[in-house]
């Protein structure tokens, strides 16, 4: 597999702020890659460097085999971008903006454009100043998704969309995946990344702290277990990897490192299990633990 985006050791400072601090990021061709981090982590900065809008202080960035700062125009023919802050021209209608951005990228698929307008329930005849944040985002999304490009770079594209439109967005991204496009999706909406992404990179304070498939990242998480046993629990308290144990009579509740689950279950079974509920690790939890640890 080839890399659509490969970034290593990227540093970017704004005066005293170190927005990116030795950042690595690797996105393979054809995958939907989640770029996850809290506000101010450096997601938008990374994306702007990839688009040649900002110049990195040091480190290397390659995009579709080219240098994002030098080969700007040639690379931009092959990608579409949805910014985090979409601001439209007050006097242009949404439809005019979609067509403008499409033409600048070298044309868009008419039929796809109409279909997307319908799916997103967007009226293209309204003037830019009258759109809400969500609708402005839809304009940028329709423009990007109806372009014929290899790579989509989306910076928190759903932050203004309601849940219904969020579902439409997810369908659209799945369509793009099937067409073999590469997608870099920055987000702090975990459910979205969980539902859509093949791989995820987690970034904090301008540094990539973790990257891999969702399955790869599970070793960092804990599963919550609550169970009713036949007799009093034994041995759980001393077991490696078990945390926050609460025992009341025959009931127990605890959390266990996901890779120690096996041992904990064996221990439970030895006491006889009546009922058992377990909650799988969510990305949310994984996320929290990374940022909790830092404090």
């Amino acid at each position: 597999m080839t890399s659509a985006i490969s970034v290593s050791g990227l540093v970017k400072t704004f005066g005293p702020t170190r927005a990116l601090d030795d950042l690595d990021l690797n996105v393979q061709t054809g995958e939907v890659h989640g770029f996850l981090g809290p506000n101010g982590a450096g997601k938008s900065t990374t994306i702007r460097i990839l688009l040649g809008l900002l110049r990195a202080d040091s480190g290397t960035a390659r995009l579709l085999g080219g240098d994002p700062w030098k080969d700007t125009a040639a690379l931009h023919r092959r990608l579409a971008y949805v910014p985090g802050d979409v601001n439209l021209w007050p006097n242009l209608t949404g439809g005019e903006v979609i067509d403008l951005l499409g033409r600048l990228r070298g044309g868009l698929r008419k039929q796809r454009r109409e279909e997307l307008l319908e799916r997103f329930e967007l009226d293209p005849r309204k003037k830019g100043r009258t759109y809400s944040k969500g609708n402005r985002q839809k304009v940028a999304l329709v423009a990007a998704l109806s372009s014929d490009v290899e790579l989509l770079i989306l910076d928190e594209p759903t932050s203004g969309l309601d849940p219904l439109m969020e579902a439409v967005f997810q369908d659209c991204i799945n369509d793009e995946r099937e067409r073999g496009r590469t997608v870099l999706l920055s987000s702090h909406i975990l459910a979205e990344v969980e539902a859509l992404c093949d791989r995820v990179s987690i970034i904090r304070n301008g540094h990539c702290v973790e990257t891999g498939t969702l399955a790869d990242l599970r070793h960092l998480t804990r599963t919550s277990i609550s169970a009713e046993l036949a007799g009093p629990p034994n041995g759980l308290a001393n077991l490696d990897g078990v945390h926050d144990l609460v025992a009341e009579g025959n009931r127990v509740k605890f959390e266990v490192d996901s890779d120690k689950l096996d041992l904990a279950l064996k221990q439970l079974v030895s006491s006889g299990v009546r009922t058992l509920t377990s909650q799988p690790p969510t990305l949310e939890e994984l996320f929290l633990r990374h940022y909790e640890d830092a404090k």
Partner: peptide, 12 residues
């Protein structure tokens, strides 16, 4: 403000 055209001709 009135509604405008659904598509545009600006391309440069």
């Amino acid at each position: 403000t009135r509604l405008g055209p659904a598509g545009g001709t600006i391309g440069t």
